[in-house]
């Protein structure tokens, strides 16, 4: 199914979720083109962006876009690997629902999104320091650390 996508854009890597959901790793410069292609191309029609989330892995961020196509009843994810300092382009122009998602990622991971209409903290107060979902984040208060034993 994804032959067109692979021909049109450079796919760095592919992986799979447990239940046959394909995920494609692409360059971050391509993200806007890929998403608008997937959304509008009649062979995909990924009309909905279920969510965007980020994983702090291998000393870099992986920003993951979960897409849903009603017509073909499939899902796929588009992944971007970026370093801690890099900024992502905002996809709010393509999917409006990305607005809160990107704010949440900015809030909890500190990833900046270019051209975002209102990039502010969303879940945590403005005065909060640090980005708690980063693996390097240390809890300031000794009492809040819980179950810090070995894995």
């Amino acid at each position: 199914m994804f032959e067109n996508l692979k021909n049109k854009f450079e796919i760095l890597r592919e992986s799979e979720y447990q239940q046959d959901i394909h995920s494609f790793y692409i360059k971050k410069e391509d993200i806007l083109n890929v998403l608008s292609y997937l959304k509008n191309s009649p062979s995909y029609l990924f009309e909905r962006l279920d969510c965007i989330y980020t994983v702090d892995i291998n000393n870099s961020f992986e920003v993951i876009y979960v897409l849903q196509s009603d017509k073909y009843n499939t899902k796929c994810t588009i992944n971007c690997n970026i370093s801690y300092e890099e900024e992502m382009p905002s996809v709010t122009s393509i999917y409006s629902s990305a607005n809160f998602d990107e704010r949440e990622i900015f809030d909890l991971f500190g990833v900046k999104f270019n051209n975002h209409p209102n990039l502010k903290r969303i879940l945590l107060p403005e005065s909060f320091e640090g980005h708690p979902l980063r693996k390097s984040y240390k809890m300031q208060d000794e009492r809040l650390r819980w179950n810090n034993g070995s894995n």
Partner: peptide, 30 residues
């Protein structure tokens, strides 16, 4: 491994995305 687990909750689509790294604790849950 990683998994997207979905359910149709009363309010709509509820997804639990788990990234597991083979340890006792989940690596990331969204």
């Amino acid at each position: 491994g990683k998994v997207i687990s979905e359910v149709e909750s009363p309010r709509g689509l509820l997804q639990c995305i788990i990234h597991a790294d083979g340890t006792k604790k989940p690596y990331r849950i969204k």
